[in-house]
Computed example of a mutant assay.
Amino acid sequence: MVDFIEKNGKGLNLTWEVRNGIVKHSKGYRDILPEDSKELPATLEGQAVRVADIIAYLNHDMDDALRAGMIRESDLPKHLREVVGDRPSMRVDTMVRDLITETLRLDDGRLHLSPMMQEVIKDLRSFLYNKVYRNERVHNEFEKAQKIINELYSFFLEHEFSDNTEHPFVERPPVRGDKARKQLHRQVCDFIAGMTDRYALGIYRHIFMPKPWSVL
C-alpha cells in the first residue's frame, strides 16, 4: 500500500520513522508494549500511536457490543471493573493515566504500562475475543464479508474498468505466463485491500445485485 499503490503506483514519500511506526504497529494477541525494544516502534510517537490505538479499539469495541446488546456491563469480570471502572470514559482515563504515570516513573526513553494494567488490558482483550469477536452473530457477518471479498476477487481477475459509464466493466484480455498471472493476482488483491467497507459493499451491489426497473 505505502510503496506501490498510493499515488498511482508511485508510493508515498514517508520518513523512515513513519514507516517504522507502521511496521511495528500491532493489534491482536501480541504484547502491548513488548520488553524487547526491537519489537517496538523506534520513536515515542510511534509507541504512543500503538498504545493509543489498542486502548481506543478495545473501549470502542466494548461500547459497540454494549449498544448492540451482545454483552452487558455486568458481564465484564469484576476485577476489570474494579481496576478500570465501569464507564467508557473511566476506562480510557484510567489506562491513559497509568501510561503517563508509569512512563514518567521509569523515565528510560520509552513508554510503559504498569504490569497490573498490562494484565488488565490483556484480560479485557481476551474477554472481547471470547464474548464478541468470536460470537456467532459476529462470525456470521465475517462469513458474509468473506463471500463478498471472494466474489469480488474472482470478478476482477476476469474484468477491468471501462470508460463506458453504462457498461463500466469489460472482460480482461487473456493473461499468459506465470509472471503476468501473479502480477494480476497481486493487483487485484491490492485493489480490494484498499477498499473501504462502504465502497466494497457498493461495488458488490453494483456488480452482482439486480437493479429495480423504474416504472413511468
Results as ranks from 00 to 15, higher is better:
Met1Arg: 07
Val2Trp: 11
Lys7Thr: 13
Lys10Ala: 14
Lys10Val: 13
Gly11Trp: 06
Asn13Met: 07
Leu14Phe: 06
Leu14Gly: 04
Thr15Asn: 03
Trp16Arg: 15
Ile22Trp: 01
Val23Ser: 11
His25Thr: 05
His25Val: 05
Arg30Ser: 09
Arg30Cys: 09
Asp31Val: 10
Ile32Pro: 06
Leu33Met: 08
Glu39Gln: 13
Thr43Gly: 06
Arg50Gly: 01
Asp53Gly: 10
Ala56Glu: 13
His60Gly: 07
Asp64Val: 14
Gly69Thr: 11
Met70Arg: 12
Arg72Gly: 10
Asp75Thr: 14
Asp75Gln: 08
His79Cys: 00
Arg81Trp: 01
Val83Glu: 09
Val84Thr: 12
Arg87Asp: 15
Arg87Phe: 07
Met90Arg: 15
Met90Glu: 15
Met90Leu: 15
Val92Pro: 04
Thr94Tyr: 00
Asp98Leu: 08
Ile100Cys: 10
Ile100His: 09
Thr103Trp: 03
Arg105Ser: 15
Asp107Cys: 04
Asp107Pro: 06
Asp108Arg: 12
Gly109Thr: 04
His112Cys: 02
Met116Asp: 01
Met116Pro: 05
Ile121Pro: 03
Lys122Leu: 04
Leu124Thr: 07
Ser126Met: 06
Phe127His: 00
Phe127Val: 01
Asn130Cys: 01
Arg134His: 04
Glu136Val: 08
Val138Phe: 02
Val138Thr: 06
Phe142Val: 09
Leu152Pro: 15
Tyr153Val: 12
Ser154Glu: 14
Ser154Leu: 08
Phe155Glu: 05
Leu157Val: 08
Ser162Cys: 08
His167Phe: 06
Glu171Gln: 12
Pro173Met: 07
Arg176Lys: 11
Arg176Met: 11
Gly177Tyr: 02
Asp178Trp: 06
Lys179Ser: 05
Lys179Pro: 03
Lys182Leu: 11
Gln183Ser: 15
Gln187Asp: 15
Gln187Val: 14
Gly194Glu: 00
Ala200Trp: 00
Leu201Asn: 14
Ile203Ser: 06
His206Ser: 15
Pro210Ile: 02
Ser214Asn: 12
Val215Asn: 13
Val215Lys: 11
